[in-house]
Amino acid sequence: MPDRVGPDPQYDVFADEFLEHGRDGLYNAHYDRPACLDLLGGVAGKTVLDAACGPGLYAAELVDRGASVLGFDLSPRMVELSRRRVPAGSFRVHDLAAPLDWLPAESVDLVLFALALEYVDDRVRALAELRRVLRPGGALVLSRLHPTGDWLRHGGNYFEARVIEEVWSRGWHVRYWLSPLEQTCAELREAGFLIERLVEPRPQPEAAAINADAYRRLTSEPTGFLAIRAIPDPR
Rank of each mutant, 00 (worst) to 15 (best):
V133D: 07
P87C: 15
W151Y: 10
F18L: 10
L81E: 10
D213H: 06
E80K: 10
L198E: 11
F14N: 01
E206C: 01
V167D: 08
G149T: 11
A60I: 00
H146V: 10
I228A: 05
M1C: 04
W168R: 13
G156A: 06
L39H: 07
D122L: 03
V5E: 00
Y215L: 02
E200Q: 11
H30N: 06
V69G: 10
P2N: 08
E206R: 13
L49N: 02
R132P: 10
D64L: 05
S107K: 12
P76V: 07
L117W: 07
P87D: 12
R235T: 13
R92P: 00
G224T: 02
R125S: 13
S68F: 09
G45C: 13
A161N: 03
A139N: 06
P9V: 12
S90D: 14
A161I: 02
S75K: 10
N28V: 08
E106W: 09
S220C: 01
R189E: 08
M78V: 00
L198W: 06
R217L: 09
W151D: 01
P55L: 10
F72Y: 15
M78S: 13
Y158S: 03
D50N: 08
A105K: 11
P87M: 11
M1H: 08
L96K: 13
A98W: 15
D8M: 09
G156S: 12
A209D: 05
T148E: 05
R33Y: 05
S220Y: 02
F225S: 04
D233E: 11
I210Q: 10
R83I: 03
R33M: 09
V86L: 13
H30W: 07
A161D: 04
E182Q: 04
E196N: 07
W168N: 09
A161P: 14
A126M: 11
D101T: 14
N211Q: 06
